[in-house]
Design a protein around this nucleic acid. Structure first.
Lengths: 340, 340
DNA sequence: CTGAAAGCGCTAACAG
DNA sequence: CTGTTAGCGCTTTCAG
C-alpha cells in the first residue's frame, strides 16, 4: 500500500514519532535528521494520510459552502461568483465542498469532524434549521447574504434594501411615476428586501403603490420573461420596471422587444446585481452592483480566521452596493410618465 | 465530546463491536439487539466519525470535481450546469469537492485516500499531468469533455467538431460564403475542435479560408465583444460569424449593434453550447446544443459505478450535439454574400 | 449471535 | 533531541 511514516522511520533508523515531528517541522528535532527524513519522504513520495491526521487532530481540512438550493433561484452567474470568491481565498489549504442545503434530508453528516468550517450563502429563512444545526455543532460559521439575528455569527451582507431604494429613486428622478416591480423568488430574503426598497422609494415620493404593478418571478430569465408578459397585457403599462435581478431583466427585455416595443424608448428597465451579462445586453442595463465576489471572499477569509482562532470577533458586516447607470432608462418629461 | 460507539455499547450492555455491526446492519446480529442499539444511537444523536471510518475502510466519501481552471475560460453557465449535473446524482452520498486544477502547485494531497473518485472537466492538454497523477494513484476517474487516448479511462464527450461543422454547413446552406470565426480560448481542446469543424465545413464547400476572418477569443463575453470589434474594422466584412460559444456570441452581438448594424439583417451570428442566455438574447441565437448537464450526470453516475466496482467497463461515450435554429441567421440570396 | 484483541496512520504525553 | 507508549473511533479477524 501507500507509504507511511513507519516506512520512513525504518529507512531513517529513527522512530516514527521522530518522523512525524520532523515532517511537521517541530523545533524539537535536529536540523540534520529533519533534512534526512524529509529527503527520504520526498524520495518515497510520501503523502500523509489525511484521515489519520483528522482522527487525531480533529480537523478535516474541509470547508463547506452551502447554498439554500442549487436548483431554482440560484442564478449561474451568482453561483459562479460565489464559488470563485471563496475558492480564491482557501486555495489548496482546504477542500471546498459545495452543496445545496436542500440536498440533505437530515444533517447528521454535517459535523464538526467533517467540516472545519461552514459558509452558508443564505437566501431564505428555511435555512435557519441548518444554520442552527451548525451552531449547535459548534462549527465555525459564516453566513452570507442574509442577516441572522439569533446568536453570534459572522454575517456578511449587502444592503439590498438601500440599493433597491436608490435605483427606484433614480427612476423617479428621471421622471418615472408608473414603476412596476418584478419580484424575486418567493421566500427569499433578498426578494423581500428589494421589494421593500422599492416600496420605500415610492412612498417617499408619495407615489401610490399599484398591486397590478407587482409581479412575482423567481430570479431566472424565463421568469422575468413571463412576468413581463404579464405586465404587458394589462390595460395600463408602467413606464419603468424594476427587475429584482439582472437575469430577470434580460428576460423582461426579451418580452418587451417581442411585443414590438423598445427599451428604453417605450419602457425603461433596471436590474439588480450587476451580473456580467448586464453590460452586454442591449441596451446595457442600469443596475445595482452587488459585490458578490467580494462578499464571498471576505466571508471565506473571516471563516479561515475563525477556524484558527475560536474567539475572533463575530460581527455583521455590510458591503455597499453601487448604482451603475447605463442605457436602459429613459429620462422622461413630466406628463408622459404613463403610456397606454 | 461527541458520542461514539463505545458510549452506546455501555448503555446497551454490549461490546462496541456489536454496536458497530448493528449500526452497519450486519446479518450477524440479532434483530432485537439491533433495534435496541439503533434506538439508543438515535436517542444519543450518534453520528459516525468519518475520519475513523475512512482510516480503516480506505474510503473518504469525497468526490472531486476538477476544472482546468476556475478562472478565465470557464463560463458561469457552463460551470453551473456541470456542478449541478454532478451534484444531482451524488446527492448526499458523497461530498462534492470543487476545485480548479490550477489551484494546485503539486498534487500531493490528491490521493486515493482523500478522493474516492475524481471527475475532470478537462479543457486542455495541460490537464494531462493531473490526469496521469490520478491514474497513477489508481483513483477511479472519469474525464469529461476531452478525449484521453492513453490508458483506459471512462471518457464522456460531445462531438464538438461535428457540431461545429454542422452549424457552419447550415450557414453555407443559408447562402453564406464569407464566414468568420471567433475562436475559443487558446489551448483549449474544445476551441480546436470547433475550429476544425469550421474549417472542414468550408473546405467541403470549397470556400477558401481567409485568415482575416479568424479571430481568437477566450470564451467570455468581453472577448467576443473585442473580437467582433476587430472584425468590424476590416475593409471586408463577413456575412456571418461563427462564435465558438454563446457567451462570445452575446459579446459579438453587442459590438455589432453598437456599430449601428443589425443582426441578422446585416450580419448573421451563431453560437455554440446553447447556454440558457442564448434563448433570451435578441435575436435569439441559433446555436449548437451541447448536453453539458447530461454529460456531467452521466459522468457522475459512471464514476459512482466505478467506485463500487473496480472492473466496470471503461469506455469513451459520445453524446450528440444538436443544431438549434433560432433567429440570428439570415437566409441570403446568392450574390450578396459579401457586404462591404 | 457476541466479544476480545488487534490494527488502520497519526500525534502527544512522558521519559530519558 | 529522540524513543516508548498510548490512544483517536472504527472495523475485522478469530474464538467462543
Amino acid at each position: 500500500m501507500s507509504v507511511t511514516i513507519k516506512d520512513i522511520a525504518r529507512l531513517a533508523n529513527v522512530s516514527h514519532t521522530t518522523v512525524s515531528r520532523a515532517l511537521n517541522d517541530s523545533p524539537l528535532i535536529n536540523e540534520d535528521t529533519k533534512l534526512k527524513i524529509k529527503a527520504i519522504a520526498k524520495q518515497l513520495k510520501y503523502t500523509p494520510n489525511i484521515s489519520a491526521k483528522s482522527l487525531v487532530l480533529h480537523r478535516s481540512y474541509n470547508i463547506g459552502l452551502f447554498f439554500s438550493t442549487l436548483n431554482t433561484g440560484t442564478s449561474a452567474g451568482f453561483f459562479y461568483d460565489v464559488v470563485r470568491g471563496v475558492n480564491g481565498v482557501i486555495k489548496d489549504r482546504y477542500k471546498l465542498i459545495v452543496k445545496g442545503i436542500d440536498d440533505y434530508k437530515e444533517y447528521g453528516t454535517v459535523t464538526k469532524k467533517s467540516f472545519d468550517g461552514i459558509i452558508v450563502m443564505s437566501q431564505s429563512s428555511d435555512d435557519n434549521r441548518f444554520i442552527r444545526h451548525a451552531m449547535d455543532q459548534q462549527i465555525p460559521l459564516v453566513v452570507l447574504n442574509r442577516e441572522i439575528k439569533y446568536g453570534a455569527v459572522t454575517n456578511i451582507l449587502s444592503d439590498d434594501l438601500r440599493g433597491a431604494r436608490n435605483i427606484v429613486k433614480y427612476l423617479i428622478d428621471q421622471g418615472h411615476r408608473a414603476i412596476a416591480i418584478i419580484e424575486g423568488k418567493r421566500g427569499f430574503q433578498s426578494a423581500q428586501d428589494r421589494k421593500e426598497g422599492y416600496l420605500q422609494a415610492l412612498r417617499h415620493s408619495s407615489i401610490p403603490v399599484k398591486p397590478e404593478f407587482e409581479v412575482i418571478g423567481n430570479y431566472d430569465m424565463e421568469s422575468g420573461y413571463q412576468a413581463m408578459h404579464h405586465l404587458l397585457v394589462q390595460p395600463r403599462l408602467p413606464s419603468a420596471v424594476f427587475c429584482s435581478n439582472d437575469e430577470m431583466a434580460v428576460g423582461a427585455i426579451k418580452a418587451i422587444l417581442e411585443k414590438g416595443l423598445k427599451v428604453p424608448d417605450d419602457l425603461s428597465i433596471v436590474g439588480f446585481d450587476d451580473n456580467i451579462v448586464s453590460a452586454f445586453v442591449t441596451p446595457a442595463l442600469t443596475t445595482v452592483r452587488r459585490p458578490i465576489e467580494k462578499v464571498s471572499r471576505e466571508g471565506a477569509s473571516r471563516l479561515v480566521d475563525l477556524i484558527d482562532n475560536d474567539e475572533a470577533p463575530k460581527e455583521a458586516l455590510y458591503m455597499n452596493t453601487e448604482l451603475i447607470i447605463r442605457q436602459s432608462v429613459k429620462k422622461l418629461d413630466r406628463g408622459d410618465s404613463d403610456i397606454s
